Lab assay of single mutants.
Amino acid sequence: VTVHVDGVEYDFDNPEEALKFAKKVAEDKNGTYEVHGNQIRVT
């Protein structure tokens, strides 16, 4: 699973970890996250 944040890609073997990371980053920057299959984009 790849999490995209501001043009940087973070790869996770564990989808739950990826989702947790995306949620935290989105909260920290008052943004949102979208899941597209095995890609998660934080905006």
Rank of each mutant, 00 (worst) to 15 (best):
V25R: 05
Y33V: 15
H36Q: 13
V3I: 03
V8N: 09
G31I: 05
A26T: 06
K20G: 08
N38R: 09
Q39Y: 11
T2M: 06
R41V: 15
D13G: 09
A22Y: 00
E34P: 01
V3H: 00
Y33P: 02
V25W: 09
V25M: 14
F21M: 04
K29F: 15
N38F: 03
A18L: 01
K20N: 13
I40W: 01
K20R: 13
L19E: 08
N30V: 04
N14H: 07
T2H: 07
E34V: 11
E16H: 07
E16G: 06
T43D: 08
E17H: 06
Y33G: 02
V25L: 12
D13Y: 07
F12G: 01
K20L: 11
Y10D: 00
D6V: 03
V1N: 05
P15S: 12
T2Y: 06
D13E: 12
A18N: 02
N14K: 06
D28F: 10
E17V: 06
G7P: 00
F12P: 00
A18D: 02
H36L: 14
K24L: 10
N14C: 10
Y33N: 02
E27G: 11
D13M: 10
E16F: 07
T43Q: 11
T2S: 09
K29E: 09
G31E: 04
K24C: 13
K24G: 10
T32P: 02
I40V: 06
R41G: 04
E27N: 12
A18R: 01
V3G: 00
D28S: 13
T2N: 04
E27S: 12
E9K: 14
Y10T: 03
V42D: 01
E17P: 03
V3N: 01
E9C: 14
V42E: 01
E16S: 07
A22L: 04
P15H: 14
V42C: 03
E9W: 13
Q39R: 09
H36W: 09
N30S: 07
V25H: 08
D6I: 03
V3C: 03
V35D: 04
R41A: 07
Y33H: 03
V8L: 11
D13H: 08
G37M: 07
V1G: 03
K20I: 11
R41D: 08
N38H: 08
A22F: 00
E9H: 13
V25K: 07
F12A: 00
T2L: 05
V5T: 04
A26W: 03
K24R: 09
E16Q: 08
L19H: 06
Y10S: 02
K29A: 11
N38Y: 03
G31T: 07
A18W: 01
D28R: 10
F21N: 03
K24S: 12
E17K: 05
N30F: 06
H36N: 13
L19Y: 07
K20E: 14
T43H: 13
V42I: 12
A22C: 05
V42G: 01
V35Q: 09
D11V: 15
P15R: 13
E34F: 09
